[in-house]
Design a protein around this nucleic acid. Structure first.
Lengths: 342, 342
DNA sequence: TATCTTGCTGCAAATTTAGACAAAAGCTTT
DNA sequence: AAAGCTTTTGTCTAAATTTGCAGCAAGATA
């Protein structure tokens, strides 16, 4: 069918040595301009492509980075958390512009991923993208670090986690969106979301919310907080609980858009109108949030920037440049459900 | 920091030759069970991992497949078509279970992708996932085929396209959803979507729609069809056009969910109620479609199965097994916007 | 003329693994 | 005991590239 051309074939055809071909194709200044151009032309004609495996083997680097995606344990098998999909897209793009390949892999926290990739020279570094219970993999992160593997992690800076992290300021996001509701005159707040142990992201959002309230003097002893995992169903249940109060809140702050979807759904079957009687806000700006009625006010994490930051930080780490944790600002997306859009 | 162990190091430590190590680690029956276990134990102790590049170079295969994702030209830069994201997820999973790595890459139709991957031995085969104007890349597909590259394509079987394709039966989907509306007593139909040149998928959906109508005797000379690209805005405009008719339709069939989003939006500001006065249906079952009010009746393509089929077909092709095009059935998802759900 | 640059090119080593072939050892068979 | 077979291991080479070092021609300097 086809015999793949090697650099020797090019060398033969161009009347030079194979090493000159190698240098010419990598645009080395060591080879004369005319020779270089002639060689490149011949290579094009023969449809020659350097063999990545041989090249990587010799160079001991792969120009590939591995993206390890940890599944959201609450989502069903076929769906991926929309936020991470968005990250995936932007990471892919960022890799492409850095001329790196991206190896994508879904992982379970329990799996043996911590040694697979860089050790086998498949990738020069690893990006960890996950959610939920970080405690599970803390020890594995330490192992990675011990091995000298290059990696960056999406998530908040955390003293207890080794390695570099890039994340979005969940505290600020929670604070800002609560401030916004306060500025619209809302008084009786409720928070829906797992502010407890599992997701550190949610905890930070909740803390921002609390601080905004207490600064405004609106935080009371009995300001309700309903625990909920990040699903629509949990949001429905939480709102039903809130509706049973004598004086339901006039503002519900949800720890994620998925929860807010459920809250809106529960309210649809109630007497309360959104946003007139009760404001609802979410977090994440997932695509769905723009399409609900009313559309959802939420906090956006800039996934495009996040992808670029993750990739650049990893590349710096690979090249032994100093890299620091980075916290991106969160951005308020004001829509109808908070009552301030016309 | 750490010196990576090679198979020679293991061999030395185990007092055997390097080739015995190689055999032992690949569980070759040629090596004595005790020796094998001893070698494997030592390899574990030294945290040895076979160097993928060396291994691939020697074997002349990479156990990697490349996924080339062609951007939907109508979508903005930061977002990926939700349907393809879903495919991406399922392809990743299918690869993992076949113990193949997945290299993901976004491409422009114009780029030089057609030779990059398999020729450089980075991947054993290619999955092409795209949308829109196939004419642009027909010639490149031929080149791929000429080169003997292994590839499969997502999309309908099409005489004019070389290579294997796996797709979903868009004709049947269009037919079924139209039949469903007919069974609910709808009489005055309209189709919204680019039934013209660009996306063959849309053409097939439209044809199914037409055949269902004409079989039921409902197809008239003036049954309207409004061209629209697959965006919400286009859907809004199209519906506004339809609303200007003396007797607007009582059923709108949209070529995609994105279009249906726009149609619903336009109807929200009209006198017509959905689904009482007018039914609206979409295509794709994107996540948003379950959350609109009313929720959208649509056609689902089984992305999980699709991913598995694509991967398996490609692996068969790589192993020179005979592979045939495959058309998956489309599945009706009945929600509120058609008026049949309670 | 001898030596020293300078700019370019070639030689050969290095990278790690897999597999063809060879070889040794042990056993059976005639 | 010689021959033949099986089982297991070792030797050696090929896979395709990159790169340090050596060498070479030509011009410059002493």
């Amino acid at each position: 069918m086809k015999e793949k051309a090697t650099s020797f074939d090019i060398a033969h055809k161009a009347g030079v040595s194979q090493s000159t071909v190698s240098r010419a194709l990598s645009n080395s200044p060591l080879v004369n301009k005319e020779t270089r151009e002639r060689i490149q032309r011949i290579a094009r004609e023969l449809n020659y492509k350097v063999d990545k495996n041989a090249s990587n083997l010799r160079k001991q680097k792969s120009s590939t980075i591995a993206l390890l995606l940890f599944e959201d344990p609450t989502s069903d098998d076929s769906m991926i958390n929309p936020f991470f999909l968005s990250m995936l897209g932007s990471i892919t793009r960022a890799c492409a512009s850095a001329r790196y390949d991206l190896l994508v892999s879904f992982q379970n926290l329990e799996d043996d991923w911590h040694a697979e990739y860089e050790d086998s020279n498949k990738a020069d570094g690893i990006i960890l993208l996950g959610y939920g219970d970080y405690t599970t993999y803390r020890t594995k992160l330490s192992q990675l670090e011990e091995q000298g593997t290059h990696f960056v992690r999406w998530g908040a800076h955390d003293e207890e986690h080794p390695g570099i992290s890039i994340g979005c300021d969940n505290y600020q996001g929670g604070y800002d969106i609560t401030r916004h509701l306060l500025s619209l005159g809302r008084k009786r707040f409720a928070f829906v979301g797992d502010a407890g142990g599992h997701a550190p992201e949610f905890m930070a959002r909740h803390q921002g919310y609390l601080d905004a309230l207490s600064k405004a003097g609106v935080l009371k002893e009995d300001t309700p907080r309903i625990d909920a995992i990040s699903t629509e169903e949990a949001g429905v249940e939480a709102m039903q609980t809130l509706l049973k109060m004598q004086t339901p809140p006039d503002a519900v702050v949800c720890a994620s858009d998925s929860i807010a979807m459920g809250v809106l759904k529960a309210l649809r079957y109630s007497d309360l109108r959104v946003p007139e009687d009760i404001a609802v806000v979410g977090y994440d700006n997932i695509p769905v949030s723009a399409f609900t009625t009313p559309s959802l006010t939420t906090v956006q994490q800039n996934t495009k920037l996040a992808g670029e930051l993750l990739v650049n930080a990893l590349l710096d780490a690979i090249n032994n440049k100093p890299v620091e944790d980075y916290l991106m600002p969160a951005e308020l997306i004001i829509r109808q459900s908070c009552g301030s859009a016309e």
